[in-house]
Nucleic acid binder design. Sequence first.
DNA 1: CGCCAGGAGTGGA
DNA 2: TCCACTCATGGC
Length: 321
Amino acid sequence: MDKLYISSPANFSFSECTWYLDRGYDDCGHRVRNGRLLKALRVGGKDLLVEIGEGVGGLDVTMLHGRADERTRELLAAYVREWLDMDRDLTPFYTLLQRDKRLAYMCEEYKGLRLVGIVDVFEALAWSIIGQQINLPFAFMLKRRLVEKYGTSIIYNGEVFYLFPSCEVLAAASVEDLRLMQFSRSKAAYLIRLAEAFAKGELSREKLMALPDRESRLQALMKMKGIGVWTANYCLMKSLRDPSGIPHGDTGLMTALTKHKIIKERTELSKIDRFFSRYKGWESYLVFYFWRSLSEKPERAIGPAPEAGGRINSHFPGARP
DNA sequence: CGCCAGGAGTGGA
DNA sequence: TCCACTCATGGC
């Protein structure tokens, strides 16, 4: 069995990361079971299924599917470090949090939580378009339908693991196809156009990173129909790893700011700016920790593991009158 | 039934 | 530049 080991940095908590990934939504992009994280992913043109578990002083990564040469192993290690943001020193962030009585609790409560990212830029943008203005359970359901119809899959022990669809495949989909899955007409059009842009190479991680600064990256992203301020910043913080992305207009963020008594009304934009100005260089992390704060840490229901096969038969709506 | 969800585009003042 | 309106549907 192909295995590799990734040593953990200080202030890294695998369990905090997996808790976030398994915080109660039906995310088809990965699975958490018995403290281990399973994910199908693509590196260097190869589809792999990996299991990540906690070892002594680091993470044990096991390849359940796919054989890895030396280069693939390197790319896989880099993927995991990137996904869980393991190459970052959180000390300055925690120092800033400690200064605010309202937020200091986060240092203990979420200690070691990393900004769990979306490594693939196309996936990050597609996901954020899907999630615009709808509640998260519905957004995850839409994503699952899209992935199960257009994504490739790996079967392991009778269980299906999906990879997010490629831009080429999604570019060939039609608005009508997506409408049947309950995407709005405009969202369907945005997604397909985005897929075309990536398929043609008009947009890519390389092109975005080649731009001089984050302002120009925001502008480049927002030229796409369906990508506004929120989506562009979401992409910056979750995929391009910009430390200062603030998804302005995010309702979850507003809720968290209100709960923490940082603002009273959602219209106090200048107050929000002033607040974030104390966290220069850590805005993305602060937003992520705020999102984390919106999910309570429940006594997880201890039940039987999901039956083998997973949820491969999502409910599709019937034709509407 | 009404309002809100980890928004964005459009059209009119 | 700044509204109001529209899109879609699930959850509460």
